[in-house]
Amino acid sequence: MALDKIGIAKRIAQELQSGWYVNLGIGIPTLVANYVPHGLDVEFQSENGILGMGPFPFDGEEDADLINAGKQTITAKPGAAFFDSATSFAMIRGKHVQLTVLGAMEVSQSGDIANWKIPGKMVKGMGGAMDLVASAENIIVAMMHSNKAGESKLLKTCTLPLTGVGCVKKIVTELAVLKIEEGKFWLMERAPGVSVEEIKQKTEGELVVPDFVPEMVF
């Protein structure tokens, strides 16, 4: 069975390590915060200016002055810190953030990512995505394997305007965990009950498949 969005978030949460500062993008990546393994000591950074982001506030306790980069009302954990936008991106560019999780429209087998613009449609802007992908040493892309038209999002080369080049190292989709190395996708794990055949068929870029592909364990 292919995973749902929560399944993707849960699988990515397994990648977290104690002591890491983590930036979560909008969409599926935001859900990762809900599935941090018990006892793991991680802090979430949101690029609008908070370290130590906590869960959503209780009904009636929302504070207009306390939001995340998705403009959602949030809370601050004990020990949180607030800072300005230049300091926030100093943390990101300066490699003080250990993991970035973000969504994508397309990823290429050389690690290029496109997630900000569809020519001919309304352009909303890149926000912090270009800064994040250009500097983060550890980027996990959380996305569906195919787009709404059923076309693969794991490509030989991206067709959409790029957000960054050669930066993605790992991808988690509803079907598989893949890494990018030597200009190829490598199939690392498959979702429970999903066949290698299905993943091959839905991956347009070059895919290396080892003899044994374990199922994800939850």
């Binding site: 869960p55 959503f56 009904d59 306790e61 929302e62 009302t73 949030i74």
Partner: peptide, 14 residues
């Protein structure tokens, strides 16, 4: 001080 995305948790559910 308008809020753009009002996201909350329910006390009872938690």
């Amino acid at each position: 001080k308008r809020i753009e995305q009002r996201t909350t948790r329910n006390r009872e559910e938690n």
